[in-house]
Simulated scan of single mutants.
Amino acid sequence: MLYSLTDLLTWKLDAEAEGLVLSDLVFDAGSGRLVYVSLSTGRDSEGQALAPAALLGAPDPASRSLPMRITEKELSDAPRWTGETYQVDSLVSAMPPLVVGPFGATHAPLALAAFLPSSDDEDRPTDPRAEAALDRYDRLGRWLDRPVFGSDAEMGHLADMLWDPQANRIAYLVIGRGGFFSSRRHAVPFSALSYRAPGAKGGHLVLDLPASALDAAPAPDSLLGGE
């Protein structure tokens, strides 16, 4: 079975330590293997904890919960980093330049970004172990909403990833096309990824596919629950 990684971020963690929230996922861009999960304890002063993804159990769709085999001591000893607010950044950047409110007033969502904390300032690790891990691997939060290019043209933006827990591999990239109110999504194999260009805001992705390949690509919903 395949699972949406952005959806999993909303699932409940079933762990010995109470109040844990899954805040991000760290993976190997070369193989698609999930390496770490980022855990929020709900106490901002403690930062985010990086725990091995191998501690995750099998997802339970019925209860929308993820078993996490981590003890209080393991959580206390885990590497820490400061986290970021990529969900807000992605939402704001996807909205149109002007939004008309219910009473006719106009608002500029992009202007809001100037008042948001900079994710580049917030996601600097404070623990050398976390710094080494995040330098070596990539995070879902750094990839979401980044532009995606094919071999001949721009394809859209990265909207999600589909994960196979049995193989512990990201199986598909979900490419979004269209605007905030009329978007379409297509799933392409993770193996089609050929390059990730670095950049201050996450850079962009390049696939070894022509842009026209999206026309025949399946909708991600058709892949969830099995290939």
Rank of each mutant, 00 (worst) to 15 (best):
A51I: 12
A53D: 07
A54D: 04
A54G: 01
L56K: 08
P59I: 01
P59A: 06
P61D: 03
P61F: 08
P61Q: 07
A62N: 11
S63V: 03
L66D: 09
L66P: 15
P67Y: 04
M68V: 13
I70S: 03
I70A: 11
I70E: 02
I70H: 04
E72V: 10
S76K: 14
D77E: 15
A78I: 05
P79N: 08
W81T: 06
T82W: 03
T82F: 00
G83H: 07
E84F: 02
E84I: 00
E84Y: 03
T85W: 10
Q87K: 15
Q87D: 11
Q87R: 15
V88A: 12
V88K: 07
V88G: 01
S90R: 15
L91I: 12
L91D: 02
L91H: 09
S93E: 13
A94V: 01
A94R: 14
M95W: 05
P97S: 09
P97R: 14
L98S: 08
L98N: 01
V99S: 04
V100P: 04
V100C: 02
G104Q: 09
T106Y: 02
A111I: 09
A111D: 15
L112K: 12
A113L: 09
A113M: 12
F115Q: 11
D120A: 15
D120I: 14
D120T: 13
D120Y: 06
D123G: 03
D123H: 04
D123P: 00
P125D: 02
P125Q: 09
P128C: 12
R129E: 05
E131G: 10
E131T: 14
A133G: 03
L134V: 07
L134N: 10
D135K: 13
R136E: 08
R136Q: 12
Y137H: 11
Y137C: 04
Y137S: 04
D138E: 12
D138L: 08
D138A: 14
R139M: 09
R139T: 15
L140F: 10
G141P: 02
W143G: 07
W143P: 00
W143C: 13
D145L: 05
D145F: 03
R146K: 12
R146Q: 11
R146S: 04
R146M: 00
P147R: 04
V148D: 08
F149D: 06
F149L: 09
G150N: 10
S151P: 07
D152V: 05
D152I: 00
A153M: 01
E154Q: 14
E154W: 01
E154A: 14
E154Y: 00
M155C: 09
M155W: 06
G156F: 01
H157P: 01
L158D: 03
A159L: 01
D160M: 11
M161L: 14
M161I: 07
L162Y: 10
D164W: 08
P165I: 06
A167M: 07
N168F: 00
N168P: 12
R169K: 13
R169L: 07
I170D: 13
I170M: 11
A171G: 11
Y172S: 08
V174R: 12
I175H: 12
I175W: 13
G176F: 01
G178C: 11
G178T: 13
G179N: 15
